[in-house]
Design a binder for these strands. Structure first.
Length: 426
DNA sequence: TCTGGGGTCCTAGGACCC
DNA sequence: TCTGGGGTCCTAGGACCC
């Protein structure tokens, strides 16, 4: 078969921890963990930290003892750094195939079908190039479907003898079956916790059990997505590569607050700031929105207190994109849902029904494109320009306050690549 | 004391249409 | 007493991913 599909999954090793090491080489060989926003949970670990038994997703305070005892280096997450490093890595990867899908901040699928290279050598070269140009180590799995490429990537990471590149299609059938027997079904891409539970109930625990199961049973139990995973294990590609990112369906901006908030003005400060982030993203993608949701939650982990979720969604006839329209609206919605007497620990803004280019006009508005609309737009652009140049120096009054909402970030490294004030000093 | 954030897709059920 | 058939669209909730 010459025209068979062939994918590679390029995945950065312990990406956030690796980014920290690039700018702090003395961390090489040491255990590192990176925390989520607000220094809440463990979201990344170096191999040394994994070896200590620190599990993904654990709340930091629950493993703090273990961390201190073993001298584990702790970092708050630094998304400006990781995002910038990611785009550098992705740019290098893009030189190795004409078709690339940036799947997540640290992963990329590329299409290798028909490339006139020895693929293992080609991918080894990619690996060396990414490492030498960005400092980030990657592993690469190859297969005739995305599910297989994912699986191959696990192998490339797990066994050093493959030197970071593994092609699962090269395995003889018997070895392939042996491999499937050694991988739990829940480790397959697309089989999550609920599906694993259902499969375990009917005696399917390994990927091999799944592979040998009846396709009809799988479809009944897991629906179309489970069926796709099944078929991809047989080498039938069902999940195409998406080199052009689909247009966004929604924009979410939410945070856990650094302290619980009770007062309206404190919440309003937090939500105004979050609304600004959301509207910036809206503008970056050149989109407008007609549906806005504001929500605030109390802490569900506090067992002795009642937990409430307050939210409201508002739809509009005309899509909006200017912060001068959106930000005041957020405060109005918040006023409608706010209840005094509760301690809120998290809140956010969701923009949905996003539209591009064409904006539905309001049938009953008298002044289409009136002077005031044009002025509002000009004002928003001017504020945006000033803020880009002078470090967020113009704010809404509601954005100014006691800052109690600001998330904790006690262990953040510098934004070495995106802020002139935080360059690496040698 | 302290528990992330940002996405997508699928499905079932209700409302509505002719 | 007996009450069709075939659709679409929207929403909420569930599941998945990183």
């Amino acid at each position: 078969m010459t025209n068979k599909a062939k994918f590679a999954l390029v995945d950065c090793n312990n990406f956030y921890a690796s980014c920290e090491r690039v700018f702090e080489p003395k961390l090489e060989g040491k255990p590192i963990v990176v925390l989520s926003n607000n220094d809440g949970c463990i979201i990344a670990r170096s191999n040394e930290a994994k070896a200590l038994g620190i599990k993904m997703g654990l709340p930091y305070f629950k493993v703090k003892d273990l961390i201190v005892r073993n001298g584990v280096v702790v970092k708050s997450s630094n998304y400006p750094l990781y995002g910038d490093m990611s785009s550098r890595v992705m740019r290098v990867i893009s030189q190795y195939s004409p078709i690339q899908e940036v799947y997540s901040i640290d992963e990329s699928f590329i299409d290798l079908a028909g490339l006139p290279f020895h693929l293992i050598n080609h991918m080894q070269s990619l690996r060396r190039q990414v490492k030498s140009w960005t400092g980030v180590p990657v592993c690469i799995g190859m297969g005739s479907t995305k599910v297989l490429a994912k699986l191959a990537n696990r192998i490339a990471k797990k066994y050093i003898k493959f030197n970071g590149v593994f092609d699962i299609d090269e395995l003889p059938y018997e070895r392939y079956c042996k491999l499937l027997r050694s991988v739990e079904v829940g480790d397959l891409w697309g089989i999550g916790r609920q599906s694993t539970r259902k499969l375990n109930c009917i005696g399917i625990s390994s990927s091999y059990d799944f592979y040998q199961a009846d396709i009809g049973v799988i479809e009944t139990l897991l629906g179309v997505n489970g069926k796709k995973v099944y078929q991809e294990l047989y080498g039938n590609s069902c999940v195409p590569i998406e080199s052009i990112p689909p247009t966004r369906q929604q924009i979410v901006s939410s945070r856990s607050f650094g302290s619980d908030l009770k007062e309206f003005h404190e919440l309003n400060q937090a939500l105004t700031s979050l609304a600004r982030k959301a509207v910036n993203k809206l503008n970056d993608h050149k989109l407008a929105t007609t549906t806005i949701t504001v929500f605030i939650y109390t802490n569900p982990h506090k067992k002795n207190k009642t937990c409430i979720h307050l939210s409201k969604t508002v739809g509009m006839t005309t899509a909006i994109q200017d912060e001068s329209q959106l930000i005041p609206l957020i405060a109005k919605i918040l006023k409608l849902i706010y209840k005094p007497g509760y301690s809120f620990y998290k809140g956010g803004v969701v923009l949905s029904n996003l539209t591009k280019n064409y904006r539905q006009q309001d049938l009953f508005s008298i002044n289409q494109n009136s002077q005031s609309q044009v002025l509002a737009h000009k004002k928003s652009n001017a504020i945006k320009g000033i803020n880009e140049r002078f470090n967020e120096s113009i704010k809404y009054a509601s954005e100014v306050g006691n800052n109690r909402w600001l998330p904790r970030a006690n262990f953040r490294s510098n934004r070495y690549t995106t802020s002139w004030n935080e360059l690496l000093v040698i």
